[in-house]
Design a protein around this nucleic acid. Structure first.
Lengths: 340, 340
DNA sequence: ATAATTTAGTTAAACGTTTAAACAAAGGAA
DNA sequence: TTCCTTTGTTTAAACGTTTAACTAAATTAT
């Protein structure tokens, strides 16, 4: 039989209130003697308080929902780890789920989290649209967004990366290294990340006095397969380019693989630049020059933000949206070679 | 203000019991008329039942704890995904946490899960030892183990892979391809996976009439860095080998990288074989020939097992340990080349 | 000596469900 | 008509905590 606070109280000859206060360190007014006595009984019976009963009265579960598109995509484990580390530091747990970028799944997960009374939800949105903003309106708890932007009620915090700048820097870097004809394999343009990166790409072309050739920019998905297809379509259309800037590292890996299939050498014939700096980017051949995103930090900061919001929302203060913008950084490896 | 079952009941002019039965589809005896009336009110107020209140009475949370060493290690996301997919199918949620292979963390997470009344715990143990078995004794809910074996009370299920056979097959495959001097870079031998793989390696050497040279087998960690160090130490000791079988893909990737640093070609000079078939193994150069573990399946099956145990434990039946052994499979890529 | 304050607790309601047991009304059998 | 079933619904206890409000005893102040 499971042992409850009542048994402990009876055995120690005190009320349940006393036990509760001792367990929760709200025992300013409890004498050392009874404190010790109760603690001994607790140890003796190996009593572990039932958090769900507690949650029912405090209306707090110390659970944060984390919704990601797909933990299997190398970009996300770092975020999950960052979030979990911070959560754990503060005595919170994470319920995590994969949305596959589908609205129905996002909706289902949000509903589940609401039922289970999660204290807050951190979500990496799949894309921005009406549906989503509609959906988030329904959900009663604070929401923090990571990576993909969106404005809606209930969103209390955001952790973003300056995608325009990251992309702008990358293209400038390519230009500085002597590349003149920079193709661009974009991610899906219905995501803000991709559209911002495209803007950065275009602006950098202008500022570096390079020409913008629409034939060399293609939009697809954030996947290896798209990198391969993108190269094929660039080649098929006989587009003129000396380098490819890729919407993310996965695309870059796919592009390099396909270039190799076509016996085109990287970086000798074509330079390749990625975005993200996922784990494998150091280990592909050639190793990938890329725009590093602070992936771990994104998760960590998002959780930190969430916990701060939760703390201050007791005082029912500011309803403003707290936004954290993190910086990118170019990491130089071997898929780019300075041209004379 | 949050809307509860009481408000719904009052508004619909019925008792809470009636609402509860309708919400949970236990409404065999409810007339269509009231059923519809209640459902309408529920929709009108957008009522979502509070699962933690429910959990308190049913003693079921529909939450399963998932403890992994590190979600950031490319081996684990697949497991997490498999487990989450199955859980979601059946209306369960996952609380996940990283142990970093440390007992104290495993212990803390188990305690948290106990407090939060998780219905069961799925865990990928870091290593086998007394501590662990001691720890699992304490925990009140069913435990399912993935990948790393251990015997203890409370363990109600296991999903394992035949490491001996996988390793045996790999070495045999190398032998069939003409390799005679197969070095082995092992993972940590305090894990059952590594010790089983070592046994398989040795047995395969015997059965293929190859010599076992202790100088060519080294034990380290399941990490890229160890692959690099391992190669260095092999080289430093002037060990005689024509191929390296690696304890996992990470080690193999590190080994290839270091071989390249030493201007030794793979597969021309040295053949490399890995274990796991993680995501990146197809994309390193050369792509890695490896022993594929059914990673996704391991997570999926473990959750399936867990849910079955939970179902049948109502009937308080069999206390036997259900064990599922999954099979490995060699996937041929380019880090091995048939020698004439 | 009496009143005021502090200390060390206790009491009991509340959190939002589920569910076994009870019950009233209606229909059918005798 | 009386009794038995069936149908549809209600009653009320239970789940295991937390916490505001209260109290009794001890101490301090006047």
């Amino acid at each position: 039989m499971k042992i409850t606070i009542k048994e402990i109280a009876k055995e120690a000859g005190v009320s349940t209130a006393t036990v509760s206060m001792i367990v929760n360190n709200k025992d300013k007014r409890i004498s050392e003697a009874t404190r010790k006595r109760v603690l001994d009984v607790i140890k003796k019976y190996n009593y572990v308080p039932n958090a769900v009963a507690g949650s029912l009265v405090t209306q707090k579960t110390h659970i944060i929902g984390l919704i990601l598109p797909d933990i299997t995509n190398p970009f996300f484990p770092g975020i999950a780890r960052g979030a979990e580390d911070k959560a754990h530091e503060s005595g919170y747990s994470i319920i995590f789920s994969n949305s596959d970028g589908k609205h129905e799944l996002e909706e289902k997960h949000i509903e589940t989290l609401t039922k289970k009374m999660a204290d807050g939800i951190i979500i990496v949105l799949s894309s921005e649209n009406e549906h989503m903003s509609e959906l988030l309106k329904k959900c009663k708890v604070p929401v923090v967004l990571i990576d993909r932007d969106l404005s809606s009620v209930n969103i209390r915090g955001k952790v973003l990366v300056d995608n325009f700048k990251g992309s702008y820097d990358a293209v400038t870097y390519l230009s500085k290294n002597g590349y003149k004809k920079i193709a661009y394999l974009s991610g899906p343009l219905n995501t803000k990340t991709a559209s911002e990166r495209l803007k950065g790409y275009k602006q950098a072309l202008i500022d570096n006095k390079l020409i913008y050739d629409p034939k060399t920019v293609k939009c697809g998905e954030y996947k290896i397969e798209w990198g391969q297809m993108g190269v094929d379509s660039l080649l098929a259309e006989k587009a003129d380019f000396d380098s490819i800037f890729c919407g993310n590292d996965l695309i870059a890996v796919g592009a390099m693989k396909q270039l190799k299939n076509h016996k085109i050498r990287v970086p000798e014939d074509i330079g390749i630049m990625g975005y993200d700096d996922i784990y494998m980017s150091s280990y592909v051949e050639p190793s990938l020059t890329t725009v590093k995103q602070p992936i771990y930090q994104m998760g960590y900061k998002a959780m930190e933000l969430m916990l701060n919001i939760l703390k201050s929302s007791n005082k029912e203060t500011s309803q403003e949206i707290k936004t954290i913008i993190l910086d990118t950084e170019i990491v130089e490896r071997n898929s780019i070679k300075r041209k004379v």
